[in-house]
Write a protein that binds this DNA or RNA. Structure first.
Length: 351
DNA sequence: CATCCGTGGCG
DNA sequence: TCGCCAAGGAT
């Protein structure tokens, strides 16, 4: 059957070219479910290069899921700082605690069982079930969607064409070496069948790819155009105390940068709400009353759906501790649960 | 089903 | 400089 030939061709390529990644097991051995789970959650919408140092750090600090389940939330958030999508870190700890306290420290070995855990959706459940437990699943991530769109020259745009791409993936998925096949398909997308400049000349499916034969591979998958990102403005308060400590504030537990620390600031408003802040307007939102001194320049950052432009002012406080806030020594700033935008503000304020 | 949620690398 | 988009999930 044609599907068999295609899957065998891909596995042969994988056996010859497989990347050695820290969470992968030797050939013929199932990988540790904890390692697979941790890496897959980190890899959600995140590149391999960005994940590797975080994966090593987490495994070094929490060698088993039981260790992680016993960890302090603040410590986990601080370790995750910089990796983004912080709901993943919150769900990571929730999931570890559930596995430890309810499941006796063992991950479920079925797709449905895995799918019921916090932070594990369709993709991650299928990936863990196949890679750690050898289950025959249909793994569909962004790579697989791209490969299928090209292999079968599916020209309808995402996200509408998603179900059809999943059908295509399902008709190719083998019953044996399921984990290797899942990883091979994603490796193909990550290394050869890339979004831009695909290396079709090196692809094991070059003679089978309808997109390639029609000369449209590089233009697939099609996507519906995205809305333009608005720019929001904020003003951050860099507040030092007599002993040099800096005032940080904990953000609400959910939503943008949920559960992370921040340099206190005004709300972030777009141009329809007034755009850039004057110091007079902004001071009403200051956590403490101070005499403020503007810092030259601005800090820019881009989130998933808006740009942010921040100005910074500094002040010296007498003391006091506003709600949800704490004084932190400058030396310890690097260890705090500060997301990247806040680290940019720290760097800007300290120059 | 659409929107929300980070960050960094690449062309 | 800037838009694109990545091994998605939750609501």
């Amino acid at each position: 059957m044609e599907a068999d030939r295609l899957s065998r061709t891909l596995l042969a390529w994988y056996d010859a070219e497989a990347r050695r990644l820290p969470w992968r097991s030797p050939p013929g051995v199932y990988a540790d479910p904890y390692h697979v789970w941790l890496s897959e959650v980190m890899l959600q919408q995140t590149t391999v290069a960005a994940v590797i140092p975080y994966f090593r750090k987490f495994l070094d600090r929490w060698p088993t899921v039981l260790d992680l389940a016993a960890a302090d939330s603040e410590e986990v958030m601080a370790a995750w700082a910089g990796l983004g999508y912080y709901a993943r870190a919150r769900n990571l700890l929730k999931c570890a605690q559930h596995v430890a306290s309810v499941l006796g420290g063992r991950f479920p070995d079925t797709e449905d069982g895995l799918r019921s855990l916090p932070g594990i959706g369709d993709y991650t459940a299928a990936a863990i079930a196949s890679i750690a437990f050898g289950r025959a699943t249909v793994v569909v991530d962004g790579n697989v969607e791209r490969v299928m769109a090209r292999l079968f020259a599916e020209q309808a745009p995402l996200p509408g064409v998603k179900p059809r791409l999943k059908q295509r993936a399902a008709q190719l998925a083998p019953q044996e070496r399921c984990g290797d096949y899942s990883q091979a398909l994603m490796d193909l997308g990550a290394t050869l069948c890339t979004p831009r400049n695909p290396a079709c000349g090196l692809c094991p499916w070059v003679r089978d790819c309808q997109g390639r034969l029609q000369g449209i591979a590089a233009d697939l998958p099609a996507r519906t155009p995205k809305a333009e990102k608005p720019t929001r403005h904020g003003l951050a308060f860099w507040i030092a105390r007599w002993d040099g400590s800096i005032l940080l504030r904990k953000r609400p537990p959910h939503g943008l940068l949920g559960g992370m620390l921040e340099v206190p600031s005004t709300p972030w408003r777009d141009s329809s709400e007034g755009g850039a802040w004057t110091l007079d307007e902004a001071s009403k939102h200051a956590p403490l009353s101070c005499s403020w001194h503007p810092v030259r320049g601005t800090v820019r950052h881009t989130f998933t759906h808006f740009h942010l432009e921040m100005t910074v002012v500094t002040g010296i406080a007498r003391g006091g501790e506003p709600p949800a806030s704490r004084w932190v020594s400058p030396e310890s700033l690097g260890e705090q649960a500060l997301p990247t935008i806040m680290r940019k503000i720290v760097r800007h304020a300290m120059l």
